[in-house]
């Protein structure tokens, strides 16, 4: 993984949206994905929040990794440091949005605290660390993964709306049929994999 030549950030951006969607192929961020995808407005808000936070976190934690963790040789602490980075970014974003745009805060605010424990964010950072991306790659990967997550949750929210009025076996109602739907979405996204083969 580490020895591979550096991938073009633009390619990486599209690859992380479609071919290696963080949710559909890496299963990250499932909890909030299932519980928030019931209606489109909140799915949109959460998706937007995840994308913004993931992009910023990828950039910040790349800098932290490069200039703090590696020089000090404290890689064993990296989990804790990344979690703190995420929490700090979320907290700061919350304060900035509150100050700058109260309207946006009203629609985004309730989702921000949820994001601290969203596995997709930490997942993206850990992937970035393991694959030793450069700075631009890290940002592209963060933004792409966030958008991929956003796309997936919007698709799922729309599909769930349609499923609501259809007869589903009693045992499969709710989470069950949602998992089946996600399975089909994952299969559809596999169709993209011929397009760009980038890890």
């Amino acid at each position: 993984m580490n020895a591979e030549p550096l991938v073009n950030p633009v390619v990486l951006f599209f690859a992380s949206i479609f071919t290696s969607n963080i949710l559909l192929s890496n299963f990250l961020g499932m909890c909030s994905f299932i519980s928030i995808s019931k209606d489109k407005t909140s799915a949109y808000g959460l998706g937007l929040a995840v994308t913004v936070v993931m992009t910023i976190c990828a950039a910040v934690s790349w800098l932290v990794l490069r200039y703090l963790i590696l020089p000090l040789d404290i890689e064993y602490l990296s989990f804790i440091i990344f979690i703190i980075v995420i929490a700090a970014v979320v907290q700061m974003l919350e304060m900035i949005i509150d100050r700058v745009s109260p309207a946006l805060y009203m629609s985004l605010g309730i989702f921000l605290p949820l994001i601290t424990v969203n596995c997709a964010i930490l997942g993206a950072i850990l992937f970035m660390q393991i694959r030793s991306y450069g700075f631009l790659q890290a940002v592209a990967f963060g933004a792409g993964s966030g958008m991929g997550w956003w796309l997936a949750i919007m698709l799922l929210a729309s599909i769930r709306k349609r499923i609501e009025n259809n007869p589903v076996p009693a045992g499969l109602k709710g989470a069950g049929i949602t998992m089946v739907t996600i399975g089909f979405m994952a299969m559809a996204f596999i169709g993209f994999s011929g397009m760009i083969a980038v890890q």
Binding site: L24, A170, G171, L172, A175, M179, V180, G183, F184, I190
Partner: peptide, 22 residues
Amino acid sequence: IMAPSAFFLVAFVMWWAKTVQA
């Protein structure tokens, strides 16, 4: 081996468990 099967299998487990519990 690929991702979709995991989703389907989780759905099956849920379906089975909920039916038995109901």
